[in-house]
Nucleic acid binder design. Structure first.
Lengths: 192, 192
DNA sequence: CTTTATTACGGGATGCGTAAGCATG
DNA sequence: CATGCTTACGCATCCCGTAATAAAG
């Protein structure tokens, strides 16, 4: 006889869980995008992985969170009930992370950072936000400019570090430290 | 040159996680018990498992949460900063679960339940609390009594279900449905 | 010497991605 | 048909428990 699973018999009270933050994040993504596909790419997982995660969350909570019509997705009443708590949990997670980061003495200092404008490899705003959260003790001065200008600033010690495109012509030896982050071709677009 | 890992360059913002609720629950347990040992038994995991979980949380957050002296454990400043957020997250987790449970029409009905007093296998208060949270539509009448009495009540349809100890002597065929939850020996203690 | 936290290690579970299935507009 | 959610399956990773190790009272 199949019967609902209320967990191990005699499990002690106080165990809230089974539900995990990753599932909550996926859930919020689907709720906000109204789409498993878009939520999956936002959350950097495959569609199937996200589907499985949502399904396991629904199993855990014992009720469907979305009404699926293979063509559109909308919150069920249970999902609507959960959404505000879910958002709050994610907010608290980052708040907790920030609170911890704030207490750690961490690195202290000042960093003058430059970046080329057209680099596809990095995403300066996101990177800065991440860095600032992780190392709140570091003050950053950020300059966006062309590679040539940034290189000159580096040599004059007006900058400490910079993301630049390095053409062949700059390969002569110099006293700068390089780390190659990516290698890719360029496409020249011109009027005919 | 080793350098701190700020994640993939250009990762999108909005990825809070890596930290999971299970770790948060363990963290709160250790903080409240001021002891890995007691926290482990409260959370139903081994000491080593809990130790590893806390360590991974600390790695994730990039700072120690406790000052350990192999003889006592106390919160670090980072831990004190995290604790209130952690408690709030757990509170929200159960609140979310309850909110979902409240929306589900769920089962509706009345259940007369009995339980033997001395069963080590189940923990009636915790079990009832769990069940009530999952199925708020079910009203329960709970009777605690000896197995013989409970069996008589079942046969007279004064009870719907009961947890009892089943001695050999009761193995004669009857119309009750049995599910064996555990099998274990008895120890008879007596005065010499 | 005892208690308590950490490390080592093996097994089981679970999350994830690829690919196929299927329903809906 | 085409789009988009689900299922099947294989693989990697991670979590956990047992047992041995280390440190502090």
């Amino acid at each position: 006889m199949a019967h609902p699973d209320f967990g191990p018999v005699g499990v002690r009270s106080g165990d809230n869980v089974g539900v995990e933050l990753r599932q909550i994040e996926y859930f919020v993504a689907v709720a906000e995008e109204s789409s498993f596909t878009r939520a999956a790419e936002r959350s950097q997982v495959s569609q199937s992985g996200l589907s499985a995660a949502i399904r396991s969350l629904e199993r855990e909570l014992g009720s469907s969170l979305f009404h699926r019509t293979t063509r559109s997705v909308q919150l069920s009443r249970a999902g609507m009930a959960l959404l505000p708590k879910a958002r709050e949990m994610l907010r608290l997670a980052t708040a907790g992370r920030d609170a911890v980061a704030a207490t750690t003495a961490g690195l202290q200092g000042f960093l003058r950072l430059g970046a080329e404008q057209c680099l596809g490899v990095i995403d300066p705003p996101a990177l800065l936000e991440r860095f600032k959260r992780r190392e709140p003790g570091i003050d950053i001065a950020f300059t966006q400019a062309g590679s040539a200008f940034l290189l000159r600033q580096l040599r004059e010690e007006q900058l400490d570090i910079a993301f630049v495109a390095r053409p062949e012509s700059s390969r002569r030896g110099d006293d700068l430290h390089w780390i190659q982050l990516s290698q890719q071709g360029l496409v020249l677009l011109s009027a005919r």
